[in-house]
């Protein structure tokens, strides 16, 4: 069982890292710099449901390390934003899933993750440039985070419902 868990988590890190890197190549047809689809969030949802918050946090950190190495932004500002956002949104989603499981579906958990991700990134960027005016930008990011959060939540729920029982342990 232990080997199997290591293999599964390794697979999830690989998938999430690739999604993270590929996502930075996708041009979005909207003039909002910093907006992303949050595809790697699907993997975070999976790991939270299947393994819990510790593993979700580990996968999120490793994913950002791998993804930023692949896309060449390692240790740059984009890396700091991605890491802070990934860590805090993974923690928030784990908390929401464990504590309010009866209230929120995976879609709600995913939207919480997307919102926390945005707030964290704006805060990190505001600290980097030492200017609190960046919060001016938050409503625009938040408006975009709603459809992307719902989409990743629905995608995660879709695949979890069709997961073969052998993967579920």
């Amino acid at each position: 069982m232990k080997t199997r868990r290591i293999v599964m988590l390794g697979l999830f890190v690989a998938i999430a890292g690739v999604l993270h890197a590929v996502e930075s190549w996708l041009p979005l047809p909207i003039p909002v710099p910093g907006a992303k689809l949050g595809l790697a969030n699907i993997v975070s949802l999976f790991v939270i449901v299947l393994f819990g918050w510790r593993d979700a946090l580990a996968v999120a950190v490793l994913r950002v390390l791998l993804g930023s190495l692949l896309s060449g932004v390692f240790l740059g500002p984009a890396f700091i934003l991605a890491m802070s956002g990934a860590v805090l949104s993974a923690l928030a989603m784990s908390y929401a899933h464990q504590t309010w499981r009866s209230a929120f579906s995976l879609v709600g958990v995913s939207v919480i993750g997307a919102a926390v991700h945005n707030i964290t990134q704006i805060t990190a960027a505001a600290i980097l440039v030492a200017s609190a005016d960046l919060y001016w930008y938050l409503p625009y990011l938040m408006l975009l985070a709603l459809p992307t959060g719902v989409a990743t939540g629905l995608t995660g729920a879709f695949f979890l419902a069709r997961l073969p029982s052998s993967v579920r342990e």
Partner: peptide, 26 residues
């Protein structure tokens, strides 16, 4: 897959907050 009531409230509140924030910007 169904949206729960809390999901709808969460999405509605965030949407209202974002639109309100953009309105404030304007």
């Amino acid at each position: 897959m169904r949206f729960t009531r809390a999901d709808k409230w969460l999405i509605g509140l965030l949407f209202a907050g974002a639109v309100g924030g953009i309105g404030l910007n304007m």
